[in-house]
Simulated assay, not measured.
Amino acid sequence: MLPNGRPAVRRTPGRTPLAYAACAAALLFATSCGLLGDDTRQGPALTAPAGVTAQAGSATTVHVMWSRPETDADIKGYTVYRGATKVKEVPGEQHMVDVVGLHPRSAYTFSVRAEDTGGTLGPLSAKVTVTTPAAVAEDRSAPTRPGALRGHPEGGRAASLSWGASKDDKAVVSYDIYQGASKIHSVGGSETRALISGLRPGTAYSFTVKARDAADNTSPAGPALSLTTAKGSDEGPGTAPTDFRAASRRAGGAYYIDLSWTPPRTGGTVPAYRIYLDGRQATTLVWGDAPPKGTAHNSFYVGKEAGIRHRVRIRAQLPDGTWGASSAERSVTTGS
């Protein structure tokens, strides 16, 4: 305590106010330039893989497919879950896997999670449910070779394929589509067409199809088909919903727009749609466990005022999780 009653100020030897200021500036520089070990800067956030689908390949296998998350993050790999159990880990460039060793006539739920190169795990994808068919005892006969494969490009990034049905002494459970020697897609045994997406514009491809039964007997490959995608990156018309209709409806003092359409023929279910109102995306419609294969319906609120004109269209999510071409645009006026 000083004689005037003020507390004494203790100074650290060799430390002046100017020295403290210099240290603070140096610390700020080191932190901002990432020179210290505790660098809290983060890269782009991971999102969930999109377009996850599951198709029974036989009584004991399921083919799971998904697309890359909509993020700029660098993907190291994916983990596939059956329920809460990890069943497969694959590298980041792979977007499909066969899960084997399952039980016949059993329901399974699958989901997928991405991991970035820094080891960060993203959120789980939407869950998809699939049921394996019953086992067939003493089945050693493979299905017959699929019939002639036909197809055409759908713009620069997809191709529509169709083929003749195979025959089997029991039943065909699935058809596997190959690009060269690699399996790239799978559809149910009642389907004889598939939409292959995720292709590159202006590129030549060769496709073949094989049939499988419940005992995992696989047919020889059917005749090969070669085609070249268009040079542009536009989606082809075959990726768009058809027979799209829109009508106004009044209920509870408000107006709604009722929609109906036929899904594009992808060879499987379409898990989601984007609905656009007056040129802007209004919502994403995600189906539950059983998306409709026939005519689909949806209704949404647009306000309480009559005489308002709206424009509406939709897009479907394709097998690889990307979005196909838009439907025709319809105009509808509330109260008309």
Rank of each mutant, 00 (worst) to 15 (best):
R265S: 12
R41K: 14
P44N: 08
A246C: 13
A137F: 07
S326P: 08
K293P: 00
R330Q: 13
V112Q: 01
G253V: 12
T60C: 10
A247R: 11
R309Y: 05
D39W: 01
S174F: 03
R150D: 13
L18A: 15
T295N: 13
Y178P: 11
A306N: 07
V136L: 11
R280D: 04
V172Q: 05
G43C: 04
V302D: 07
T85Y: 12
V209P: 00
T132E: 03
R82V: 10
S67Q: 13
S299A: 09
G253M: 08
F29I: 14
S248N: 07
G164P: 03
R274M: 07
K167T: 15
R311V: 10
S141R: 13
V172E: 00
P220I: 06
R212I: 04
G37R: 15
V62I: 11
T269F: 09
R105D: 15
D72L: 13
H185T: 05
L121G: 14
T283N: 11
P49I: 01
V187L: 07
P146R: 00
V187M: 01
D243L: 12
S327I: 07
S327E: 01
A240F: 07
S111W: 09
R311E: 15
S160T: 12
D320W: 03
T109F: 06
T129Y: 08
V52R: 03
G83A: 07
N298F: 15
T242N: 11
L124Q: 09
L161E: 01
P3T: 10
G303M: 12
I257L: 12
K231C: 11
T266K: 02
V62K: 05
H310Q: 06
R113W: 05
V173D: 03
C33Y: 06
G267H: 03
V112N: 01
T218Q: 12
P201V: 05
P104V: 06
S233Q: 13
G307C: 08
A247E: 14
G119N: 09
W66Y: 03
R15A: 12
D38Q: 14
G324L: 00
G288T: 09
E138D: 14
V64W: 00
T242Q: 04
V52Y: 00
A114R: 01
G252W: 01
L225Q: 01
A84S: 15
G101W: 03
G14P: 01
L149R: 06
S260L: 06
P49R: 00
R309H: 10
D258F: 05
E70V: 14
H297K: 14
K293W: 02
R140D: 15
A247V: 13
S226F: 10
G267F: 03
P319A: 06
Y20V: 15
V270Y: 02
R249K: 14
T40G: 10
V173W: 02
G122V: 05
H63Y: 14
T269K: 08
G122Q: 02
A272S: 13
L318I: 04
P264T: 11
A230C: 12
A214C: 07
T284N: 10
L318Q: 04
M65E: 08
D98M: 14
Q42P: 05
E138S: 15
G122Y: 01
T129D: 13
T228E: 13
A25C: 10
H185M: 09
G232H: 05
P17G: 07
S197M: 07
F244Y: 10
L195G: 04
G303D: 11
T203L: 04
S186Y: 01
